[in-house]
Design a protein around this nucleic acid. Structure first.
Length: 427
DNA sequence: TCTGGGGTCCTAGGACCC
DNA sequence: TCTGGGGTCCTAGGACCC
């Protein structure tokens, strides 16, 4: 049986989410900014056309925004997460062989569907998603995940160029079709090849996906390691990556943030770290994990001279997801790395070496009442999930909102789908 | 003390992804 | 003035052991 994967990719996902609830935005250039209103992380086609690049800092494109009346949004993850769930649910109606790859992409394994029906099936999937969620998608269908990625990219491109929505599905199954596609795709646009490898390969005169697919595997192994060999094989139609439809537990949990302003006060930094630790501990409990190790880092502004970045780690005596205990170790780490006089711009925490939270393993000299603290954490989590995040928090994490370290979010759209108070009004 | 191969485990850094 | 956040995997090198 020949393998066949589909990649379903939402178009300009965050922008499309904003447009679903605000039809006036259609045909207008729209962008969504990263945290802290820093960079453009999603752009409508109109915004791309006027030259706004992915990741462009907001302050550098201010002139474009003003000149073209670009609609600008802060990111609204409550909305995007919820819309993503709806898209994925819709896809699951077609097959249970689905891998949710990211917030806006999913792979489907279509190997069991009859070959000659795949293109039609793709059209049906795209139409259904758009009808039920309002989100437009492009779909690539091919024998490997890497080729399916390429197919979806080409489908998107040709939909835009021809303004023909039936082009949103592209199937690459025959050798000539695949060869034709690889000729048209630059090496920079291949899944697994970033700008470092692209530059290295360019030096050897390899610029197209077709050229890469013809390279000697041993040579590629030397240049790019085992992952490079896999890319080449996938381009040749030999699957190296299978569908992963069992969600694998996270191996680490990170919470980090760039501050609104630079911090020189230890107490501010300590409050921020406590807030991140608390958020991270919530994430651990939500996935049923406990950490063996935590890492705290703090850094100055990386765009200024004398950049500093320091980390400290704590090996926890017993795996834990208990907020006050973790805050205690976070403080210890922070004291190790904090240097007076440095203007801090970013900090964060990482939990590593995660294990399943139960049963609780107790150390010989462990004096904490872990049963009691687990009940307390459960109560806090329940209240926060019913009443809204942050209803109960640790005083160490700061009770005031709008502190110096909290991020900016000037133009967030309402949480249309997850908060009754933000329901759109018909008028 | 020197000789040598081979194995494991850990960590840091580099590359990639969205 | 203003430049995101959260992941994964691989590899090289060091420490240690037999």
């Amino acid at each position: 049986m020949k393998s066949m994967f589909a990649l379903v990719d939402c178009n300009n996902f965050y922008v499309s989410c904003e447009r679903v609830f605000n039809p006036k935005l259609s045909d207008r250039p729209v962008i969504v900014l990263s945290n802290n209103d820093g960079c453009a992380v999603a752009r409508s086609e109109e915004a791309k056309a006027i030259g706004i690049k992915m990741g462009a800092p907001a302050f550098k494109i201010r002139h474009l925004i003003n000149a073209h009346q670009v609609a600008v949004f802060s990111s609204n993850y409550a909305l995007y997460g919820d819309m993503s769930r709806r898209v994925m649910q819709t896809l699951s109606r077609f097959t249970d062989q689905i891998e949710i790859y990211s917030i806006d992409e999913a792979f489907l394994d279509l190997s069991d569907f009859p070959q000659n029906t795949l293109a039609d099936r793709g059209q049906q999937i795209a139409a259904t998603v758009e009808q039920r969620t309002g989100i437009p998608v492009a779909i690539g269908i091919a024998p490997t995940k890497t080729l399916a990625k390429i197919a979806s990219r080409l489908a998107k491109k040709s939909t835009i160029e021809t303004r023909n929505r039936s082009r949103r599905v592209l199937k690459l199954a025959t050798t000539p079709d695949i060869k034709e596609a690889l000729k048209a795709v630059s090496i920079n646009d291949i899944w697994g090849i970033g700008h470092q490898y692209a530059a290295r390969l360019n030096k050897y005169g390899i610029t197209s996906a077709l050229a890469l697919s013809r390279m000697d595997e041993q040579w590629i192994q030397k240049i790019m390691g085992i992952n490079g060999v896999r890319v080449v094989q996938e381009l040749r139609g030999i699957p190296c990556y299978l569908l992963e439809n069992q969600p694998t537990p996270r191996k680490g949990v990170t919470v980090s943030q760039t501050f609104r302003t630079e911090l020189d006060c230890f107490e501010d930094l300590k409050t921020a770290i406590a807030a991140y630790t608390s958020r991270g501990a919530e994430k651990l409990r939500a996935q049923g994990s406990a950490a063996n190790m935590m890492l705290v880092f703090a850094a100055s502004n990386r765009f200024r001279a004398h950049y500093t970045f320091h980390t400290a780690t704590a090996h926890l005596p017993v795996p834990t997801n208990d907020t006050p205990e973790l805050i205690h170790y976070a403080n210890q780490c922070l004291r190790e790395i904090h240097k007076p006089g440095i203007l801090y711009k970013k900090a964060g925490i990482i939990f590593k070496d995660l294990v399943c939270e139960s049963p609780i393993q107790t150390g010989l000299f462990d004096t904490r009442n872990r049963k009691r603290s687990r009940h307390l954490m459960q109560a806090v989590d329940t209240i926060n999930s019913e009443m809204g995040r942050g209803t109960i928090k640790y005083a160490a994490a700061g009770l005031l909102s709008n502190q110096k370290w909290q991020p900016l979010s000037r133009q967030r759209s309402p949480a249309y789908t997850t908060n009754w108070n933000h329901l759109p009004m018909a008028s």
